[in-house]
Amino acid sequence: MRRFFLGVLLLLAAALPFIFQGYWLYVAIVGLYYAVLASSWAMLAGQVGIISFAHAAFAAVGAYTSAMLVIYLNFPIPLAMVAGSGAAAVFGLAIGALTLKMRGPYLALTTLAFSEIFRIFLTAEYELTRGSYGLKVPLMLDGNKTWCYYIGLLLLVATVTTLSLVLRSKLGLFLLAMREDEDGAATRGVNTVYYRLCAFVITSACAGLAGGFYAHVIGLVSPRISTISEMGLILAMSVFGGLESLMGSALGALALQSLTEYLRAFEEWRLAIFGGLVLLILKFTPQGLLPRLSELLDTCRQRKSNMLKDEHR
């Protein structure tokens, strides 16, 4: 059933450029950017239990690195994007090494501080980054929206696949054990700080990759990528789709991103509306909307099959 559902979803996603063109395709492309961010953030929050506010900043690290490598050093775009992802991983390593021994609230605050410092740095280093105007960046694939969309889809599929493989590996088993009982894991030889750091670096790399993609499909990088409200958006998307499900949070991102476009008229109120949504979801279905929907689907099917059985009697 799950396989089937996934297949249909993938087919739909692949067919999308034939259904939507122009503006809505562009919306979908940005949605894919958020989907990569939301699913990797959800892995961190849901599976590892790290609430980091630096995820948007890591995307900005990837975006600026990739953009500047292309602009100043003439890197080919794919290579620059990989380098951007690597740079985000390095930042992740540094920030992680600094914060991952801290307990929850301290870690959250430290990552928030880093995120703000980085944004201010981007704004202030005018010579390099053109400050809040942002850098104009060469587009990938001559800005062909259809191809950009497929690249984005590929990145999302690659991210979700990689992260689920990670969760199924030894690292994933250790992370699960740590979430069940941190001391229990440590006294059985699990180097908890190290494995948390691994997860942090991997998800930072995902954010950096997303950032590079964003830069070369939008054609502009600005410190806005790294604002707190962007981070809030990523958080809302992850919670909306379900923190414990990579696919769920990715779909949550796509759903909220489309919603954003409908809510254009309420620009300033957007985050407030999303905040309200997050509160409602946390109150009524804390595991997120998608896992909840699939549960409902299951019970419906069960009822149906029970009814069928009854008819046969």
Binding site: E180, T187, R188, G189, N191, T192
Partner: peptide
Amino acid sequence: GPHRIYRCGIGRTFQISKVFARL
């Protein structure tokens, strides 16, 4: 740290068990 001590060959159990319940 506890994981290093474990690797030195000192293993322990707990009065209030710390098994991984969902595994």
